[in-house]
Design a protein around this nucleic acid. Structure first.
Length: 455
DNA sequence: TTGGGG
Protein backbone atom coordinates (compact mmCIF):
# COMPACT_ATOMS: atom_id res chain seq x y z
CA UNK A 1 0.00 0.00 0.00
CA UNK A 2 1.47 3.32 -1.03
CA UNK A 3 1.31 6.56 0.94
CA UNK A 4 -1.52 7.74 -1.26
CA UNK A 5 -3.73 4.99 0.14
CA UNK A 6 -2.99 5.93 3.70
CA UNK A 7 -6.04 8.14 3.97
CA UNK A 8 -8.32 5.53 2.54
CA UNK A 9 -10.58 3.77 5.00
CA UNK A 10 -12.45 0.78 3.68
CA UNK A 11 -15.96 -0.03 4.70
CA UNK A 12 -16.04 -3.38 6.49
CA UNK A 13 -18.05 -4.92 3.64
CA UNK A 14 -15.32 -4.01 1.16
CA UNK A 15 -12.54 -5.09 3.51
CA UNK A 16 -14.11 -8.55 3.76
CA UNK A 17 -13.57 -8.85 0.00
CA UNK A 18 -9.91 -7.81 0.34
CA UNK A 19 -8.54 -11.03 1.82
CA UNK A 20 -4.80 -11.00 2.53
CA UNK A 21 -4.63 -7.29 1.88
CA UNK A 22 -3.50 -4.55 4.20
CA UNK A 23 -6.36 -2.13 4.92
CA UNK A 24 -7.44 0.78 7.10
CA UNK A 25 -10.73 0.34 8.98
CA UNK A 26 -12.82 2.25 11.42
CA UNK A 27 -15.69 0.64 13.29
CA UNK A 28 -17.83 0.48 16.39
CA UNK A 29 -16.80 -2.12 18.97
CA UNK A 30 -19.92 -4.18 19.66
CA UNK A 31 -18.18 -6.87 21.70
CA UNK A 32 -14.83 -7.31 23.40
CA UNK A 33 -13.01 -9.65 25.71
CA UNK A 34 -10.33 -9.09 28.32
CA UNK A 35 -6.63 -9.37 27.39
CA UNK A 36 -5.18 -12.87 27.44
CA UNK A 37 -1.71 -14.34 27.13
CA UNK A 38 -1.09 -16.19 23.89
CA UNK A 39 0.65 -19.54 23.69
CA UNK A 40 3.60 -17.59 22.35
CA UNK A 41 5.09 -14.59 24.10
CA UNK A 42 2.44 -12.03 23.18
CA UNK A 43 -0.85 -10.87 24.58
CA UNK A 44 -4.06 -10.90 22.58
CA UNK A 45 -7.35 -9.09 22.75
CA UNK A 46 -10.28 -9.84 20.47
CA UNK A 47 -12.94 -7.36 19.46
CA UNK A 48 -15.93 -7.48 17.19
CA UNK A 49 -16.67 -4.38 15.12
CA UNK A 50 -19.49 -3.16 12.87
CA UNK A 51 -20.15 -0.22 10.60
CA UNK A 52 -22.97 0.91 8.34
CA UNK A 53 -21.90 -1.47 5.56
CA UNK A 54 -21.75 -4.45 7.91
CA UNK A 55 -24.06 -3.88 10.89
CA UNK A 56 -24.27 -7.61 11.68
CA UNK A 57 -22.89 -9.94 12.81
CA UNK A 58 -19.69 -7.93 13.05
CA UNK A 59 -16.20 -8.90 12.10
CA UNK A 60 -13.59 -10.22 14.56
CA UNK A 61 -10.40 -8.30 15.13
CA UNK A 62 -7.44 -10.05 16.75
CA UNK A 63 -4.96 -7.64 18.23
CA UNK A 64 -1.55 -8.83 19.34
CA UNK A 65 0.92 -6.89 21.48
CA UNK A 66 4.04 -7.75 23.42
CA UNK A 67 2.50 -6.59 26.69
CA UNK A 68 -0.96 -6.25 28.15
CA UNK A 69 -0.49 -2.48 28.43
CA UNK A 70 0.01 -2.14 24.69
CA UNK A 71 -3.31 -3.81 23.88
CA UNK A 72 -6.38 -1.61 23.44
CA UNK A 73 -8.09 -1.05 26.78
CA UNK A 74 -11.66 -0.59 25.67
CA UNK A 75 -13.60 1.44 28.21
CA UNK A 76 -17.05 0.51 26.96
CA UNK A 77 -18.70 -1.53 24.22
CA UNK A 78 -19.93 1.01 21.69
CA UNK A 79 -16.59 2.83 21.59
CA UNK A 80 -14.94 3.39 18.21
CA UNK A 81 -11.66 1.90 17.02
CA UNK A 82 -9.56 3.14 14.14
CA UNK A 83 -7.30 0.43 12.70
CA UNK A 84 -4.50 1.18 10.25
CA UNK A 85 -2.45 -1.29 8.26
CA UNK A 86 -4.29 -4.37 9.48
CA UNK A 87 -4.51 -7.53 7.39
CA UNK A 88 -7.69 -9.30 6.30
CA UNK A 89 -7.34 -13.07 6.90
CA UNK A 90 -9.64 -16.04 6.45
CA UNK A 91 -10.10 -18.69 9.07
CA UNK A 92 -12.55 -21.58 8.73
CA UNK A 93 -14.36 -19.74 5.95
CA UNK A 94 -14.72 -16.54 7.99
CA UNK A 95 -12.84 -13.36 7.31
CA UNK A 96 -11.28 -11.54 10.22
CA UNK A 97 -8.89 -8.74 10.89
CA UNK A 98 -5.37 -9.30 12.20
CA UNK A 99 -3.47 -6.52 13.91
CA UNK A 100 0.26 -7.03 13.48
CA UNK A 101 2.34 -5.28 16.12
CA UNK A 102 5.15 -4.69 13.60
CA UNK A 103 3.16 -2.43 11.28
CA UNK A 104 -0.46 -2.02 12.47
CA UNK A 105 -1.80 0.79 14.63
CA UNK A 106 -4.98 1.62 16.49
CA UNK A 107 -6.75 4.53 18.17
CA UNK A 108 -9.71 4.28 20.52
CA UNK A 109 -12.44 6.90 20.75
CA UNK A 110 -15.55 7.30 22.85
CA UNK A 111 -18.74 6.14 21.11
CA UNK A 112 -21.89 8.07 20.30
CA UNK A 113 -21.75 10.23 23.45
CA UNK A 114 -18.18 11.39 22.77
CA UNK A 115 -17.82 15.17 22.79
CA UNK A 116 -14.41 15.57 21.14
CA UNK A 117 -12.33 13.77 18.54
CA UNK A 118 -9.33 12.96 20.70
CA UNK A 119 -8.57 9.27 21.03
CA UNK A 120 -8.39 8.05 24.62
CA UNK A 121 -5.72 5.49 23.72
CA UNK A 122 -3.42 5.14 20.74
CA UNK A 123 -0.82 2.54 19.84
CA UNK A 124 2.81 3.58 19.37
CA UNK A 125 2.59 3.60 15.56
CA UNK A 126 -0.59 5.65 15.41
CA UNK A 127 -0.32 8.99 13.54
CA UNK A 128 -3.29 11.33 13.90
CA UNK A 129 -4.62 13.00 10.75
CA UNK A 130 -7.08 15.80 10.16
CA UNK A 131 -9.43 13.51 8.28
CA UNK A 132 -9.90 11.13 11.23
CA UNK A 133 -12.42 13.51 12.78
CA UNK A 134 -14.79 13.20 9.81
CA UNK A 135 -14.92 9.41 10.08
CA UNK A 136 -15.48 9.47 13.85
CA UNK A 137 -18.22 12.04 13.45
CA UNK A 138 -19.93 9.97 10.75
CA UNK A 139 -19.84 6.77 12.82
CA UNK A 140 -21.20 8.55 15.90
CA UNK A 141 -24.11 9.93 13.87
CA UNK A 142 -24.88 6.50 12.48
CA UNK A 143 -24.69 4.97 15.99
CA UNK A 144 -27.46 7.16 17.40
CA UNK A 145 -30.18 5.12 15.70
CA UNK A 146 -28.28 1.86 15.49
CA UNK A 147 -29.88 -1.14 17.20
CA UNK A 148 -27.69 -4.22 17.39
CA UNK A 149 -29.36 -7.23 15.77
CA UNK A 150 -28.51 -10.04 18.19
CA UNK A 151 -29.09 -12.58 15.40
CA UNK A 152 -28.89 -16.15 16.61
CA UNK A 153 -27.40 -15.29 20.00
CA UNK A 154 -29.41 -16.57 22.87
CA UNK A 155 -29.61 -14.37 25.93
CA UNK A 156 -31.07 -16.18 28.91
CA UNK A 157 -33.16 -14.93 31.77
CA UNK A 158 -31.92 -15.73 35.26
CA UNK A 159 -34.91 -18.08 35.55
CA UNK A 160 -33.33 -20.22 32.81
CA UNK A 161 -29.91 -20.81 34.34
CA UNK A 162 -28.64 -24.37 34.75
CA UNK A 163 -25.70 -25.68 36.68
CA UNK A 164 -22.55 -25.95 34.57
CA UNK A 165 -24.01 -23.91 31.71
CA UNK A 166 -22.23 -21.09 29.96
CA UNK A 167 -24.90 -18.54 29.22
CA UNK A 168 -25.40 -15.06 27.85
CA UNK A 169 -27.06 -12.63 30.25
CA UNK A 170 -28.62 -9.20 29.90
CA UNK A 171 -28.75 -7.87 33.45
CA UNK A 172 -28.65 -4.79 35.60
CA UNK A 173 -25.63 -4.45 37.87
CA UNK A 174 -27.28 -3.57 41.16
CA UNK A 175 -24.10 -3.56 43.23
CA UNK A 176 -20.34 -4.23 43.17
CA UNK A 177 -18.33 -4.62 46.35
CA UNK A 178 -15.30 -6.16 47.98
CA UNK A 179 -16.73 -9.02 50.05
CA UNK A 180 -13.38 -10.15 51.49
CA UNK A 181 -9.79 -8.96 51.13
CA UNK A 182 -9.20 -8.58 47.36
CA UNK A 183 -12.34 -10.58 46.59
CA UNK A 184 -14.96 -8.63 44.73
CA UNK A 185 -18.50 -9.62 43.91
CA UNK A 186 -20.95 -8.28 41.34
CA UNK A 187 -24.71 -8.45 41.97
CA UNK A 188 -26.83 -8.95 38.85
CA UNK A 189 -30.60 -8.78 38.43
CA UNK A 190 -33.01 -9.14 35.50
CA UNK A 191 -36.35 -9.28 37.31
CA UNK A 192 -36.82 -13.06 37.04
CA UNK A 193 -36.47 -15.84 39.62
CA UNK A 194 -33.52 -18.24 39.38
CA UNK A 195 -34.64 -21.88 39.73
CA UNK A 196 -34.64 -23.40 43.22
CA UNK A 197 -31.57 -25.52 43.83
CA UNK A 198 -31.75 -29.10 45.10
CA UNK A 199 -30.19 -29.51 48.52
CA UNK A 200 -27.92 -32.26 49.83
CA UNK A 201 -29.85 -35.42 50.72
CA UNK A 202 -28.51 -35.52 54.23
CA UNK A 203 -29.82 -32.97 56.65
CA UNK A 204 -26.69 -31.40 57.97
CA UNK A 205 -26.44 -30.50 61.58
CA UNK A 206 -27.49 -26.87 61.26
CA UNK A 207 -25.70 -26.09 64.52
CA UNK A 208 -22.15 -27.26 63.72
CA UNK A 209 -22.46 -26.80 59.98
CA UNK A 210 -25.06 -24.09 59.51
CA UNK A 211 -26.80 -23.48 56.20
CA UNK A 212 -25.63 -19.95 55.29
CA UNK A 213 -28.05 -17.08 54.72
CA UNK A 214 -25.97 -15.66 51.87
CA UNK A 215 -23.04 -16.54 49.62
CA UNK A 216 -20.89 -13.57 50.58
CA UNK A 217 -18.88 -13.97 53.82
CA UNK A 218 -20.61 -11.06 55.54
CA UNK A 219 -24.30 -10.22 55.08
CA UNK A 220 -24.97 -7.02 53.15
CA UNK A 221 -26.20 -4.08 55.22
CA UNK A 222 -29.91 -3.43 55.33
CA UNK A 223 -29.57 0.09 53.89
CA UNK A 224 -27.82 -1.42 50.86
CA UNK A 225 -30.49 -4.14 50.48
CA UNK A 226 -33.08 -1.35 50.49
CA UNK A 227 -31.59 -0.12 47.19
CA UNK A 228 -32.04 -3.57 45.57
CA UNK A 229 -35.21 -4.61 43.74
CA UNK A 230 -37.35 -6.68 46.15
CA UNK A 231 -38.64 -9.04 43.43
CA UNK A 232 -36.42 -11.32 41.34
CA UNK A 233 -33.15 -13.08 42.10
CA UNK A 234 -29.92 -11.15 42.66
CA UNK A 235 -27.21 -13.33 41.14
CA UNK A 236 -23.83 -13.24 42.82
CA UNK A 237 -20.97 -13.14 40.31
CA UNK A 238 -17.25 -13.60 40.91
CA UNK A 239 -14.17 -13.67 38.70
CA UNK A 240 -12.02 -16.50 37.47
CA UNK A 241 -8.36 -16.52 38.53
CA UNK A 242 -6.61 -13.30 37.55
CA UNK A 243 -9.66 -11.81 35.80
CA UNK A 244 -10.88 -9.54 38.59
CA UNK A 245 -8.76 -6.50 37.82
CA UNK A 246 -9.50 -6.81 34.10
CA UNK A 247 -13.26 -6.73 34.65
CA UNK A 248 -13.76 -4.44 37.63
CA UNK A 249 -13.15 -1.17 35.81
CA UNK A 250 -15.53 -2.22 33.03
CA UNK A 251 -18.51 -2.78 35.33
CA UNK A 252 -20.57 0.00 36.86
CA UNK A 253 -23.27 -0.26 39.47
CA UNK A 254 -26.67 0.83 38.16
CA UNK A 255 -25.83 0.00 34.53
CA UNK A 256 -27.43 -2.67 32.37
CA UNK A 257 -24.90 -4.93 30.71
CA UNK A 258 -24.85 -7.83 28.27
CA UNK A 259 -22.42 -10.61 29.11
CA UNK A 260 -21.62 -13.32 26.58
CA UNK A 261 -20.47 -16.59 28.13
CA UNK A 262 -20.91 -16.47 31.88
CA UNK A 263 -20.22 -19.74 33.70
CA UNK A 264 -23.05 -20.78 36.02
CA UNK A 265 -22.28 -22.84 39.09
CA UNK A 266 -23.91 -23.78 42.36
CA UNK A 267 -22.04 -23.05 45.60
CA UNK A 268 -23.38 -23.66 49.11
CA UNK A 269 -26.88 -24.00 47.67
CA UNK A 270 -26.69 -20.65 45.86
CA UNK A 271 -26.33 -19.77 42.20
CA UNK A 272 -22.96 -18.28 41.36
CA UNK A 273 -21.93 -16.67 38.09
CA UNK A 274 -18.27 -16.63 37.09
CA UNK A 275 -16.71 -14.21 34.63
CA UNK A 276 -13.89 -16.09 32.89
CA UNK A 277 -11.34 -15.24 30.21
CA UNK A 278 -13.96 -16.41 27.66
CA UNK A 279 -16.60 -13.96 28.88
CA UNK A 280 -17.27 -11.02 26.58
CA UNK A 281 -19.01 -7.70 27.06
CA UNK A 282 -21.52 -6.65 24.42
CA UNK A 283 -22.85 -3.26 23.36
CA UNK A 284 -25.75 -2.32 25.64
CA UNK A 285 -27.15 1.16 24.99
CA UNK A 286 -29.80 2.55 27.34
CA UNK A 287 -32.56 1.85 24.82
CA UNK A 288 -31.37 -1.69 24.07
CA UNK A 289 -34.13 -4.07 22.96
CA UNK A 290 -33.16 -6.89 25.33
CA UNK A 291 -33.14 -4.45 28.25
CA UNK A 292 -36.54 -3.06 27.28
CA UNK A 293 -37.97 -6.59 27.23
CA UNK A 294 -36.67 -7.27 30.73
CA UNK A 295 -37.98 -3.99 32.10
CA UNK A 296 -41.39 -4.57 30.52
CA UNK A 297 -41.65 -8.15 31.86
CA UNK A 298 -40.67 -6.93 35.33
CA UNK A 299 -43.30 -4.17 35.29
CA UNK A 300 -45.91 -6.69 34.15
CA UNK A 301 -44.83 -8.99 36.96
CA UNK A 302 -45.12 -6.24 39.58
CA UNK A 303 -48.64 -5.39 38.45
CA UNK A 304 -49.73 -9.03 38.53
CA UNK A 305 -51.30 -10.62 41.60
CA UNK A 306 -48.69 -13.39 41.56
CA UNK A 307 -45.79 -10.94 41.26
CA UNK A 308 -44.27 -11.73 44.66
CA UNK A 309 -44.91 -15.46 44.44
CA UNK A 310 -41.86 -17.42 43.26
CA UNK A 311 -42.04 -18.17 39.52
CA UNK A 312 -41.25 -21.80 40.32
CA UNK A 313 -44.13 -22.25 42.78
CA UNK A 314 -47.17 -23.89 41.22
CA UNK A 315 -50.35 -22.09 42.28
CA UNK A 316 -52.01 -25.27 43.49
CA UNK A 317 -49.15 -26.42 45.69
CA UNK A 318 -50.29 -25.84 49.23
CA UNK A 319 -48.70 -27.64 52.14
CA UNK A 320 -49.57 -24.98 54.70
CA UNK A 321 -52.75 -23.13 55.61
CA UNK A 322 -52.35 -19.51 56.66
CA UNK A 323 -54.59 -16.96 58.37
CA UNK A 324 -55.10 -13.68 56.51
CA UNK A 325 -56.32 -15.04 53.19
CA UNK A 326 -56.85 -11.59 51.70
CA UNK A 327 -53.42 -10.14 52.56
CA UNK A 328 -51.10 -9.80 49.55
CA UNK A 329 -47.87 -11.79 49.44
CA UNK A 330 -44.47 -10.13 49.76
CA UNK A 331 -40.99 -11.49 49.10
CA UNK A 332 -38.43 -12.25 51.80
CA UNK A 333 -36.46 -9.26 50.48
CA UNK A 334 -39.54 -7.11 51.23
CA UNK A 335 -39.42 -8.53 54.76
CA UNK A 336 -35.71 -7.72 55.16
CA UNK A 337 -36.06 -4.18 53.86
CA UNK A 338 -39.41 -3.17 55.40
CA UNK A 339 -39.31 0.30 56.94
CA UNK A 340 -40.47 -0.76 60.44
CA UNK A 341 -39.03 -3.33 62.81
CA UNK A 342 -42.46 -4.46 64.00
CA UNK A 343 -44.58 -5.78 61.17
CA UNK A 344 -46.51 -8.77 59.82
CA UNK A 345 -46.09 -10.37 56.40
CA UNK A 346 -47.33 -13.24 54.25
CA UNK A 347 -44.74 -14.98 52.06
CA UNK A 348 -44.23 -18.03 49.86
CA UNK A 349 -40.94 -19.70 50.73
CA UNK A 350 -39.34 -23.10 51.22
CA UNK A 351 -37.62 -24.47 54.31
CA UNK A 352 -34.00 -25.23 53.44
CA UNK A 353 -32.89 -26.07 56.98
CA UNK A 354 -34.23 -26.55 60.50
CA UNK A 355 -32.49 -26.42 63.87
CA UNK A 356 -33.18 -28.81 65.46
CA UNK A 357 -34.58 -31.00 62.70
CA UNK A 358 -35.02 -34.37 64.43
CA UNK A 359 -38.64 -34.92 65.46
CA UNK A 360 -37.70 -35.87 69.03
CA UNK A 361 -35.80 -32.60 69.54
CA UNK A 362 -38.38 -30.11 68.32
CA UNK A 363 -39.62 -29.37 71.84
CA UNK A 364 -37.66 -27.94 74.75
CA UNK A 365 -37.43 -29.90 78.03
CA UNK A 366 -40.44 -27.84 79.15
CA UNK A 367 -42.41 -29.33 76.27
CA UNK A 368 -42.81 -26.19 74.15
CA UNK A 369 -41.77 -26.01 70.51
CA UNK A 370 -38.58 -24.06 69.72
CA UNK A 371 -37.25 -24.45 66.19
CA UNK A 372 -35.28 -22.17 63.92
CA UNK A 373 -36.24 -22.56 60.26
CA UNK A 374 -34.14 -21.23 57.39
CA UNK A 375 -36.62 -19.89 54.82
CA UNK A 376 -35.66 -19.25 51.22
CA UNK A 377 -37.36 -17.60 48.27
CA UNK A 378 -35.77 -16.45 44.99
CA UNK A 379 -34.75 -13.15 46.60
CA UNK A 380 -33.00 -14.18 49.82
CA UNK A 381 -32.92 -16.40 52.91
CA UNK A 382 -33.93 -15.56 56.49
CA UNK A 383 -34.06 -17.33 59.82
CA UNK A 384 -37.59 -17.60 61.21
CA UNK A 385 -38.37 -18.99 64.64
CA UNK A 386 -41.25 -21.30 65.38
CA UNK A 387 -42.06 -21.04 69.08
CA UNK A 388 -44.57 -22.18 71.66
CA UNK A 389 -48.18 -21.77 70.66
CA UNK A 390 -47.24 -20.81 67.09
CA UNK A 391 -45.56 -24.25 66.93
CA UNK A 392 -48.62 -25.83 68.46
CA UNK A 393 -50.75 -24.33 65.69
CA UNK A 394 -48.16 -25.24 63.03
CA UNK A 395 -47.97 -28.93 64.00
CA UNK A 396 -51.65 -29.22 65.02
CA UNK A 397 -50.95 -29.72 68.71
CA UNK A 398 -48.45 -32.25 70.00
CA UNK A 399 -48.55 -35.30 67.73
CA UNK A 400 -46.42 -38.42 68.27
CA UNK A 401 -42.74 -38.38 67.27
CA UNK A 402 -43.54 -40.52 64.22
CA UNK A 403 -46.16 -38.07 62.99
CA UNK A 404 -43.86 -35.12 63.71
CA UNK A 405 -41.11 -36.83 61.69
CA UNK A 406 -43.43 -37.22 58.71
CA UNK A 407 -44.42 -33.57 58.98
CA UNK A 408 -40.81 -32.39 59.15
CA UNK A 409 -39.84 -34.64 56.22
CA UNK A 410 -42.63 -33.08 54.17
CA UNK A 411 -41.61 -29.56 55.15
CA UNK A 412 -37.91 -30.14 54.41
CA UNK A 413 -38.52 -32.14 51.23
CA UNK A 414 -36.78 -35.24 52.54
CA UNK A 415 -37.17 -38.08 50.04
CA UNK A 416 -38.70 -41.09 51.78
CA UNK A 417 -36.95 -43.93 49.99
CA UNK A 418 -33.85 -43.24 47.94
CA UNK A 419 -30.92 -40.86 48.13
CA UNK A 420 -32.59 -38.27 45.95
CA UNK A 421 -31.52 -34.67 46.61
CA UNK A 422 -33.81 -32.76 48.93
CA UNK A 423 -36.34 -30.49 47.25
CA UNK A 424 -38.34 -28.64 49.91
CA UNK A 425 -41.82 -27.70 48.67
CA UNK A 426 -43.03 -24.11 48.48
CA UNK A 427 -45.24 -23.16 51.37
CA UNK A 428 -47.11 -20.11 52.58
CA UNK A 429 -46.02 -18.53 55.85
CA UNK A 430 -47.27 -15.74 58.05
CA UNK A 431 -44.24 -13.95 59.48
CA UNK A 432 -43.92 -11.35 62.15
CA UNK A 433 -40.93 -9.13 62.59
CA UNK A 434 -40.12 -7.84 66.09
CA UNK A 435 -37.27 -6.72 68.31
CA UNK A 436 -35.75 -8.27 71.41
CA UNK A 437 -34.45 -5.02 72.81
CA UNK A 438 -36.26 -1.72 72.45
CA UNK A 439 -32.96 0.19 72.75
CA UNK A 440 -31.54 -1.69 69.82
CA UNK A 441 -34.64 -2.36 67.78
CA UNK A 442 -33.00 -2.89 64.37
CA UNK A 443 -29.98 -4.74 65.76
CA UNK A 444 -32.13 -7.18 67.70
CA UNK A 445 -34.70 -7.77 64.97
CA UNK A 446 -36.00 -11.34 64.62
CA UNK A 447 -38.68 -13.10 62.62
CA UNK A 448 -41.29 -15.55 63.84
CA UNK A 449 -43.73 -17.77 62.05
CA UNK A 450 -47.33 -17.38 63.22
CA UNK A 451 -50.83 -18.08 61.94
CA UNK A 452 -49.52 -20.97 59.83
CA UNK A 453 -50.57 -24.62 59.92
CA UNK A 454 -48.78 -27.50 58.20
CA UNK A 455 -51.25 -29.70 56.34
C1' DT B 1 4.11 -17.03 15.91
C1' DT B 2 0.21 -16.28 18.81
C1' DG B 3 -5.87 -16.85 18.05
C1' DG B 4 -10.15 -17.25 15.87
C1' DG B 5 -14.34 -20.85 20.95
C1' DG B 6 -15.23 -22.94 25.34
Amino acid sequence: MGDSDDYKFLQIRDAIAAVNQKVNLIGVIIEFGVPKKTRGTDWICTLKIVDESHPKPGISVNIFAESMEKLPHVVSAGDIIQLSHVVMKTHCGEVNVVFNKRFSSFALYEGKDGKDFLPYQVSSKFRPRDLDKKFIEGLRKWLVDFQLDEGLSNFSFLREIKEGDRIDLACKIVHICEVAKDEWMVFLWDGTDAPPISLPTKLEDDLSNPVPLQLEPVALQRDLLCTFPAVGTILRVIFDQGMQNQYLHLLHSGKWVKFVNVLCEVKSGFWLGILTSFTKLRYTPNDDQLISVRQRLYNERLSSERGCIPYWCFPWSRITEVDYDDVPFVTLMDVLTYSEVTAKFKCVARVVAALPWQAEDLRSPLGTYRIRLTLEDPTTRIHALLYGEDGEKFFDGYPSTDVLRLKMNKLLGVAVSDNAPRTPPWAQFCLKSYYLSKNEAWGSRQYRIFGTKLE
